[in-house]
Amino acid sequence: MYTIEAEGLEKEYRIGLLSKRRVKALRGVSLRIQKGTLYSLLGPNGAGKTTLVKILATLLIPDAGWARVAGFDVAREAVEVRKRVGVVLGGERALYWRLTGWSNLWFFSQLYGIPPAEARRRIRELIELVGLQGWEHVRVENYSKGMKQRLHIARGLLNDPEVLLLDEPTIGLDPAAAREVRGLIRRIVAEGRTVLLTTHYMAEAEELSDRVGIISGGRIIAEGSPGEVKKIIGGRMVLVSLTGPPGEASRLAALLGARARSIDRVTTIEAVVEDEEEFIDKVLGEALRRGLRVRRVEVREPSLEEAFIKLTGGPR
């Protein structure tokens, strides 16, 4: 059973009020997400992730196509969708900084029509869930980024939603705070909710997701479990670490169509290739000819990040 379904979604933005310039954000996106699973949507900046989330949250009306969330059409039955969806948009804003965490949650609980006694109980539970006990009566302007993000998540869960849409919930957080938020997301999925997560962090998606979709240029270009997506690109990841004359290893990487990363004086050439032996032979032969010394050779399965880069054509 699918909790989120979308078919042929298209969305185009006009840039400026009078300008004729238009940007196509979605070009026929179709999506199906099963109940009680976590689906990560990965994509470079401007790929259409946030547009898709906003359509599913009823904040945008698609130009073409349709989407249903919790069984209701996002355009024609927006109020029913809103009752069943929680939304957490990234960033520090979207909270009343001059109010306390409790007052923020109370205000939004009333917008969702939660009766006062139930709202108080729910807020207490959520404060505990997100670990903000002792801080609930402190103004939000005094919270750290991580605390604000946890309060955002608590707000997104106020209406006990079937579906939670998380738009880059760990953006800008330090590793410890991001880890706390990831733990929280895991608990939310374990409660049986369906979660759509957009993120730039591949490790996060790989760690949390049942399925991932890679969106680029307004289209979903790959979809499946993290393992399946890694297999879509085929081949193996080869990493060869080299030292030698400055710049020579980078030139070699360019020649072979591979990526090069330098740390101190060691440059690592990396590429996802079909025939790893042939590639290694080529690198070793060229390295010898250019006076480079081989420090390490590693062959492994590509990570989700490497699959992402290969599929989307590299970092933007």
Binding site: K54, A57, T58, L59, V79, R82, K83, V85, V87, L89, G91, R93, A94, L95, Y96, F108, Q110, L111, Y112, G113, R155
Partner: peptide, 18 residues
């Protein structure tokens, strides 16, 4: 200005009540 407009409009509450 607060950055809360989308969240207000995402809630099922009547805009006129707000």
């Amino acid at each position: 200005w607060y950055g809360t407009l989308e969240l207000i409009l995402q809630a099922p509450a009547s805009r006129i009540a707000v």
